[in-house]
Design a protein around this nucleic acid. Structure first.
Length: 283
DNA sequence: GGCCAGGAGAAAA
DNA sequence: TTTTCTCATGGC
C-alpha cells in the first residue's frame, strides 16, 4: 500500500488556516509551502495539488482509521457555518475570513500537556517547549526536510522526567504542573478513557483536578480532543472579542459560558475558533 | 528594557 | 466567594 493519500477537493479545508488558528502546535510550514504535521506517532507532509489535498507519510488504511477523523473530514462545515451565520456582522465576517478552518480531533493526553504549557505563554515558545519534550522523551519517527521529528511522549515516557529535567526543557514554572499531572494520569487518578464518554460538565470536573488545568485549559482539551463543539475556551482574546463585538464585559467564567451557549448555540466552541482566528490574524 | 504571551494556584480581601 | 499577586522565559 503506497504511503500517499489524496483527498479530492475537500470543502472548507485550508491548510494554512488550520495551522495558524491556535488549536495545534505541531503544524510547521516548510520552505516549499507544504506543512509537516506530527500527530498520533506519525510525521506527515501535507500540501495542495490544485483543489486536492495530498498527504505523504501514511497509507489509505491509516488515513481511514486515524487521520480522516483527526482532520475532522467526517463533518460537513457548511452545516456549521449555516448554523452560525446571520447572527451578527462580525461573526459573519469571521466565517468568511476563516472558511478553511477545521477543528482537529487531537490526542487528549497531548492536549492536556500542550495547553498546560500554553498558559501565560506565547505560541512560538509553546511550540518550542513541545518540541523539546518530544525530542527528549518521545520516539524518533523520521526526518523531513532535514528536520528530525519526534512523537509526543506518552505518559509513561514522560514519567521518567524529574522536575529538574522538565525545568531544563524551558517550561518555566509549569514544570511542576507537568510533573504532577503526569503522575496523576499514570496513577489513573483520572482515567482519560472514562472522560471520553462524559458530558461537558462531568468532563470539566475531572479535568480541572489535574494540576495546571483550569477552566480555560479544560475547555481547550474538550474542544480539541473530546469532540465537544459547544466547549467555549475563554482567554484574554475571547474576553476582548466579547467586550468589543458584543458589549459583554464580564469576568465570571461561568456567566461567560452561559452567554456563549445561549448566543452561539451548540457550535459555540467552533464560533469561538472563527472569532479567535479573525481577531488575531486579520490585517 | 519593559511588556506581553490562548492562565492557574495560592494568598488576601 | 471574588479579587489580587506571583509564577519562568523568550520574542518583540
Amino acid at each position: 500500500m503506497k504511503n500517499r493519500v489524496v483527498i479530492k477537493k475537500p470543502k472548507n479545508f485550508i491548510i494554512s488556516q488550520i495551522a495558524d488558528s491556535g488549536q495545534t502546535f505541531r503544524w510547521d510550514e516548510n520552505f516549499d509551502g507544504s506543512y509537516t504535521i506530527i500527530a498520533f506517532n506519525k510525521a506527515i507532509r501535507i500540501f495542495n495539488d490544485n483543489e486536492d489535498i495530498v498527504i505523504e507519510g501514511i497509507n489509505e488504511l491509516e488515513f481511514e482509521n486515524t487521520f480522516k477523523n483527526y482532520l475532522d473530514l467526517n463533518r460537513d462545515y457548511q452545516l456549521v457555518i449555516d448554523e452560525l451565520k446571520n447572527k451578527d456582522k462580525n461573526l459573519d465576517e469571521a466565517l468568511v475570513y476563516g472558511s478553511g478552518i477545521r477543528i482537529l480531533n487531537q490526542d487528549t493526553w497531548e492536549m492536556i500537556i500542550s495547553f498546560i504549557i500554553s498558559g501565560n505563554n506565547n505560541i512560538p515558545r509553546i511550540k518550542n517547549s513541545i518540541n523539546v519534550l518530544s525530542e527528549r522523551y518521545g520516539k524518533f519517527i523520521k526526518e523531513i526536510d532535514g528536520k528530525r521529528l519526534y512523537s509526543f511522549p506518552t505518559p509513561e515516557e514522560l514519567s521518567v522526567a524529574t522536575i529538574e529535567n522538565l525545568r531544563e526543557c524551558g517550561l518555566g514554572y509549569r514544570d511542576k504542573y507537568i510533573y504532577n499531572t503526569t503522575k496523576m494520569i499514570i496513577n489513573k487518578d483520572i482515567d482519560l478513557s472514562d472522560i471520553k464518554n462524559m458530558d461537558i460538565d462531568e468532563a470539566r470536573i475531572e479535568l480541572v483536578k489535574l494540576m495546571g488545568v483550569g477552566n480555560k485549559v479544560a475547555d481547550c482539551i474538550m474542544l480539541f480532543s473530546l469532540n465537544k463543539s459547544n466547549s467555549f475556551p475563554v482567554d484574554t482574546w475571547v474576553k476582548k472579542i466579547l467586550k468589543d463585538y458584543y458589549n459583554f464585559d464580564e469576568k465570571n467564567n461561568k456567566k461567560i459560558n452561559e452567554f456563549a451557549n445561549d448566543y452561539f448555540g451548540k457550535y459555540a466552541g467552533i464560533a469561538q475558533q472563527y472569532l479567535f482566528n479573525y481577531i488575531r490574524n486579520k490585517k
